[in-house]
Amino acid sequence: MEKIITIDNLIFEYAHSEEHSRQLALNDVNLDIYAGSFTAIIGKNGSGKSTLAKNLNGLLIPTSGVVYVDGYDTADDDTIWEIRQRAGMVFQNPDNQLVSSIVEDDVAFGPENLGVEPAEIRRRVDKALEDVNMGKYKNKAPHLLSGGQKQRIAIAGVVAMKPDIIIFDEPTAMLDPKGRKEIMKIIAELHEEGITVILITHFMEEVIDADRVIIMHDGNVLLDGTPEEVFSKADIIKGANLEVPLMVELGDRLRAQGIPVPKGIIKEEEMVKAICQLKSQN
């Protein structure tokens, strides 16, 4: 598989101007992200997830180390806009990332910044709004929409820029369960269309669809692998004060009771199947 993002020895410190102290937010992170993959990043509050996300499109520049996106160095001023066009970002608060008081004008904002031709912007905006199922709302004002709908507009705004990668920084944290489901469905669809997805979240159910899970802890990568691999190390995850998905927890407890369900089950249907098989064997 082709690498689309390379992170080498990334260290990032926030400078506190007032107290001259420094906050080490990322401490030597090394990762490769592959084109077309779906990577989930989880970790406690303050573990450095957002800082990492912002280092992936040059919103923050590494204190030391390098980040390459599609071969471009994020520290290079000349190519920063190439990077930001390729690596779009959706933020947590749906309200604070919409610019315009009309939905379609907001979606057009990114392509307009890129200097795309008006007719092409029109096409992209209509397509992007269809992609997130918000075509009906193109002339509405964002403040009249629900949180989930606003977040879909934010996603459309990124999609209209034709990115290769979309980084979602806890996109569902401020939404109700219905809004959360809608957003997760759209993310899965975008992934199917070939977009490389990086999803930062603290909801374990959202991690399960990913093909790779990275657990961050104190500015470091604690675990990295397929969901099955990562969640088979439940003790390490719990050591980092994180919960494991419900099915992993259930599997652990069943095994502790002497019921031999296989390790690495994270989805409900798989657990049901495994238990039924055990039952039919007895």
């Binding site: 919103l59 604070n96 610019v99 910044n113």
Partner: peptide, 20 residues
């Protein structure tokens, strides 16, 4: 937040900007 979101969407002032 908004300034960061605008930067992430390649906003760099009026130069070279087109309109839908």
């Amino acid at each position: 937040d908004l300034a960061m979101a605008m930067e992430a969407r390649c906003y760099r002032g009026g130069d070279g900007r087109t309109r839908m």
